[in-house]
């Protein structure tokens, strides 16, 4: 898939907004139409965090995603909240390290990634989002690995560029899992 409507959700600190920004930035580099919309407010600190990303060819109407074709649930509350809204034949990515239930819908593609555990294994639980991103890239082909690497290089501030390698290592872990 080239275009997508994504809801990424989890708790604050999991890098939800950052992952969404990477998708948005990658879309911009590709010359696509895009929007990125975060939840905001006090819940950003430790509570739930989510963001909506749309990638399209036509100008984007509402930036609020009501029928995602990709739902990324990094913890259980968003899976409970958004499962029913996912478009038919869409994808639901589940961090199975933190979510103990299966997707109930049968008309969507459920992908279970043990991303938090894998991130811990490669040394940093904060990379669970990157592991999950790898799985998303492989499954949906929304962007290629090299496009995402390019995006990180262009979007991260200079002092954080060393993170590109660490992040990409985690992305590849997730990519190879699927």
């Amino acid at each position: 898939m080239e275009n997508c409507e994504v809801i990424l959700a989890g708790f604050g600190g999991q890098g939800i907004l950052f992952t969404g920004k990477l998708l948005a930035y990658a879309a911009m580099l590709k010359g696509k139409q895009l929007s990125w919309l975060p939840s905001y407010g006090p819940e950003m600190r430790g509570g739930t965090a989510n963001c909506h990303v749309i990638v399209a060819d036509e100008p984007i109407g509402s930036p609020i995603v009501t029928k995602p074709n990709i739902l990324v649930a990094m913890n259980k509350p968003p899976l409970d909240k958004f499962e029913d809204s996912v478009a038919k034949n869409g994808y639901i990515f589940v961090d199975s390290s933190l979510i103990d239930r299966r997707v109930e819908r049968t008309d969507v593609n459920a992908v279970y990634i043990d991303s938090t555990r894998i991130a811990n294994e490669i040394g940093n639980k904060n990379l669970a989002n990157m592991v999950m991103l790898g799985a998303i890239l492989k499954t949906t082909e929304v962007f290629s690995l090299s496009e995402i690497e390019e995006t990180m290089k262009k979007s991260l501030p200079a002092k954080r560029l060393p993170l590109v390698e660490t992040n990409m290592k985690a992305v590849k872990e997730g990519y190879d899992l699927v």
């Binding site: 920004k21 948005a24 911009m28 895009l34 929007s35 990125w36 919309l37 975060p38 905001y40 984007i60 930036p63 609020i64």
Partner: peptide, 10 residues
């Protein structure tokens, strides 16, 4: 509004 203020677009 809050949405326009918070959202990112190119």
């Amino acid at each position: 509004d809050g949405t326009l203020g918070q959202m990112m677009e190119p």
